[in-house]
Design a binder for these strands. Sequence first.
DNA 1: AAACAAATTGCAAACGTTTGCATAAATCTT
DNA 2: AAGATTTATGCAAACGTTTGCAATTTGTTT
Lengths: 335, 335
Amino acid sequence: MNDRKLKLADLAKLAGVSTSTVSRALNDNPLIKQETRDKLQQLAKKHNFSLNTAASRLRTQKTNVVAVIINLDGDTEQSINDPFLLKIVGEINLALNKFGLELLLSNSFMASDDWANYFINSRRADGIIVVGQGKSQANIEAAASAGVPLVVWGDPKTPSSYPIVGSDNYLGGRIATEHLLSNGAKNILFLGDPGHAEISERHRGYLDAINEAKATPHVVSIDITSSAAYKGINQLLVEKGLCFDGIMACSDMVAFGAMKALKERYISIPNDVALVGFDDIAMADISHPSLSSIKQNTQRASVILVEKLLAQLAGQSVESQVVEIELVNRQSSQR
Amino acid sequence: MNDRKLKLADLAKLAGVSTSTVSRALNDNPLIKQETRDKLQQLAKKHNFSLNTAASRLRTQKTNVVAVIINLDGDTEQSINDPFLLKIVGEINLALNKFGLELLLSNSFMASDDWANYFINSRRADGIIVVGQGKSQANIEAAASAGVPLVVWGDPKTPSSYPIVGSDNYLGGRIATEHLLSNGAKNILFLGDPGHAEISERHRGYLDAINEAKATPHVVSIDITSSAAYKGINQLLVEKGLCFDGIMACSDMVAFGAMKALKERYISIPNDVALVGFDDIAMADISHPSLSSIKQNTQRASVILVEKLLAQLAGQSVESQVVEIELVNRQSSQR
DNA sequence: AAACAAATTGCAAACGTTTGCATAAATCTT
DNA sequence: AAGATTTATGCAAACGTTTGCAATTTGTTT
């Protein structure tokens, strides 16, 4: 900060024009002669000029900022460190930047629960992207009905007054289960928490696949963390022995928890128990055995999220959308 | 958004006082009588009032926003999805919120390389937290010497004109190596990229421990990703066979890459090769065998980062600081 | 060359806060 | 009870942009 910050008026004086002209020139407004525009833009660059966004936002009533809220349930151990959630945030960041928007990061216990007020009325952001539906959609519902431009990463099939973008969880659950079945598994566990919006869809897919195969469903309901999965499988093995030969886990982290419990008891994966996860996090490819998983196209989803948010800001009404999923076939389910 | 946004003047009219009074009351300014303050604050709450931050920022020249920049090298594959980097961001977010600050997330290829201008002169943020030194400190140096309030997560021992907070990487490397030695390993590989600031310190620690034990150092220099580690170890095994019995990996993700290569060849961990990672990410506890690792105290570091940034904003000069590390002893190194 | 249209630029008023200073009301002094 | 303090409020000017409108310059038409 060599000297005091340059403002539009200073540039104007330097160039011998009015501030309006400089403002328009820097915004590439065709009202200004091309020649003057070029000259002023160069001058700005030369002096390292940059607009005061506070002033600009005040005047235009636009921020070009999007708030991203990581929406965790109060009663889960699933933490803000969950690799998948953070991966999504990373992707959304990229997508936003592509559209010239900035990302204000928040977790769900920020200031108040009143998102409309905290983010929008206060002109902190133009819109909100919520990552994760959680178990309760009350906060989201409230914000949406207050007219806040809002999109959600979650399960698109959930009926809602706001657009939800997410994977076809039902299909994911179904494909994963069918894959296990076709690899010869007969007794397949569902490992996860069917109370959770997205996971309940995966569970439905699982059930349908199981029923069609005339097999018996068996749900181990746990909090969606690796340690809960580890404990859950361990306990099951202690109490009932190896009463299953396949696991469809509701996330990769959960799958790894299960994998650990199995390995510790020298139960072979995939020979004794075939395993499929969900999310396809980086670790899935590196674990041994590598973990078959349902890959969510987070990159594409992020772009769609941003596009839908922009559409809302432009006054259009938008709908929920499913992004395709894909089974990544690795060792843990192969036999 | 039922009706038009309430502003300070509207509240004032409702209460029959001036805007100055409302402004002061909401900021808990003792100039205003306690009674009036209470009354106005209640009124504000009742009407869901919230300040226009744009106006406020323009007037006060403060934003209460901190930009967090994930500073990746251009030439590494280490991605924005690296669990450890994102973990740190999560922790920083928590720490910032604790101090009433907000977090503007950016990656290093934002708008321009001129951070001083882009973030500070434009009044987007009051200060910057840089996560990761990367190989080149040019950007950071430039911003710091422009007088930008700035703190860096990195290696605190790097000489610098700006404060760096980070783990005692030298000690970490040393402790990890000594631990491997004391578990009977004789030929210990260092797996990582010694060109990288933080990792070079870990490497120094490794070297000193090796030399003191009169053992022979052996560095496998790779990009700091799991897949590079996997390939690196694989290649080494192909070319020279099992010429080592311990690995000190520069990160957990790298350790997992190595682990996979070893497991695929039925090399036992820890019996044939003992392994220690760095970062103690969630997965370290869940892998099988579980991964011994040097745990960085990211939570404490985050708080310190924020405190130091605030101190700078208050005009104080601050210094780099080391946060303690800890060896988490798990199966991968135990024999 | 006058009258008109089109292309450029400038003027000045917002946007909604905060805050130094002046004022008004309440309390204290003597 | 009138001045001197202290306490509580209001006035009005900033903060740095953007933008409708007016004004000027330039080019075109008759």
